[in-house]
Design a protein around this nucleic acid. Structure first.
Lengths: 194, 194
DNA sequence: TGCTAAACGGGACAATGTTCCGTATCTTCA
DNA sequence: TGAAGATACGGAACATTGTCCCGTTTAGCA
C-alpha cells in the first residue's frame, strides 16, 4: 500500500506530493531521533530535525503511537513472519518458541522506551498496543499452542500475557540488568515439570 | 528517629512545630492521592489536598522519590523484616523465597505506578531506587543464597537482577494480565532442572 | 511583648503536548 | 499557461506540569 493511494478499491484523489515527501522526511527524522532520545523524544525535536512545523507531525501521525508504528513497522512484520518459519525449522516447538522470543527481545531492547510505551495505559498509545497485539500475539499463540501440544510446556498461559510479561522484562536499560537472562528464566519456567 | 531531631549525636535546633505538622499532613495527603492517582500525581494536586503551597512540598521532600519513600517506608520495612522470618519457618529455602517474593509482589501491584517509578532511570528517582536496593536486595540475596545452597535452584542470578525483573513484571495494570502468575513462572524458571 | 530565623504560599519561569488559523503551495481544468 | 480551489504548512497560542524565587507570615525565645 503506497502513500499516494487510498488502499480500498475506488481511488480517491491521491495525496499531494509535498505531503508524501514530508511524511517520508518525518519518518527518517523520527527514526534517527528515536535512536538517540527514545520514543518519547519531544515533538519539537523531531519536527526540527525534519525541518517542518509541529502541526505537520500531528497531521501525518495523529498520535505518537502512529508515528512509532510507522517507524518500526518493517521490523515488527519481520518478527511476525519469523514465527511460522522457526516452527518449521526448529527441532521442537519449545525450541522455536525460545528462538522467536529471542527475536522479540532483540527488537525490544534496542528501542529505548518502546517497551515502556507498549505497557503504558496512556490512551495515546492504544493504537501501538493494538498493533502489536494484532500482529504478534497470534504468532506467539501458535508457537505456544504447538509447544503445549507437544507436551513440553504447561498450558494455561495466554500468549497475550506472555508477550506482555516479556515486554515488561525488557523495559529496563540498567547496566546491571540483563533482560535476555530474565526472559530466558521466564521461558524456562514454562517447562512442564517432569 | 523522630522528625524533630538530627539523628546524629549533637542535637541542633529542632524543627518548628508547624513544619513538623505540615510534613505529617503532606504524608497523609500524598498517601491518599497516590492511591487514586498513582505516584506520578501532579505536585499541585498533593499540595492542594494538604492545603499547602507547592514550595512546601519541595522543602520537605526535595525530590518525588523522597516523598514516595516516606509514604511507603513502613511497608518496605515490613517486607524486609519478613525475609529472615520466612526463611526460618518455611519448609525449604526455595519455599521461603517464593513466599517472600509473593509479599513483594503484593506490595508492588497495589501501588499504581510505583514499579514504573522504580524502573525509571530518571535522575529524580535515584533515591527511591537506592532505598529499595539497600533495604530489599540484601534480604532477597539471603533467600537466594539459601535456596542455591540447598540445591533447589540454579545459581548465578544476582538478587538485584531478580528483584528488578519481578518489579518489571509488576508494573502492569492491564486487566488481562496477572503479574502474580508471571512472577510465579519466573520463580519456577529458577528451579534447577533435575 | 518584640525580635529573628524558619517556614510559608503563590506567582513566575521553563519544558512539552496539542490545536488553531492565516498563508503558501500543489493540482486541476479551461 | 494561468487562475481557482483544495490541500498542506508553519508557527504562534494555549494548557499542563515540574521547579524555583521572593515577599510575607509565624513560631520560638528572651
Amino acid at each position: 500500500m503506497n502513500d499516494g493511494d487510498r488502499g480500498a478499491g475506488h481511488a480517491a484523489r491521491p495525496k499531494r506530493a509535498d505531503a508524501r515527501r514530508n511524511k517520508e522526511t518525518l519518518l527518517d527524522a523520527a527514526a534517527a531521533i528515536f535512536v538517540t532520545s527514545g520514543v518519547d523524544a519531544p515533538v519539537r525535536e523531531i519536527a526540527a530535525k525534519a525541518g517542518v512545523g509541529t502541526a505537520t507531525i500531528y497531521r501525518h501521525f495523529p498520535t505518537r503511537a502512529d508515528l512509532v508504528i510507522a517507524v518500526y513497522r518493517h521490523q515488527v512484520e519481520a518478527c511476525a513472519e519469523a514465527g511460522p518459519a522457526l516452527l518449521a525449522t526448529s527441532a521442537t516447538p519449545y525450541a522455536a518458541l525460545g528462538r522467536w522470543i529471542d527475536l522479540f527481545v532483540d527488537f525490544l531492547v534496542t528501542k529505548h522506551g518502546l517497551a515502556a510505551a507498549l505497557r503504558s495505559d496512556d490512551a495515546g498509545f492504544d493504537a501501538l498496543h493494538a498493533y502489536f497485539l494484532d500482529r504478534l500475539v497470534p504468532v506467539c499463540a501458535e508457537l505456544l499452542d504447538a509447544a503445549a501440544g507437544s507436551g513440553e510446556i504447561r498450558s494455561g498461559l495466554e500468549a497475550y500475557e506472555l508477550m506482555r510479561g516479556v515486554g515488561n522484562l525488557c523495559m529496563d536499560n540498567d547496566s546491571r540488568y540483563d533482560a535476555r537472562r530474565l526472559v530466558e528464566i521466564l521461558i524456562a519456567g514454562l517447562r512442564r515439570p517432569h
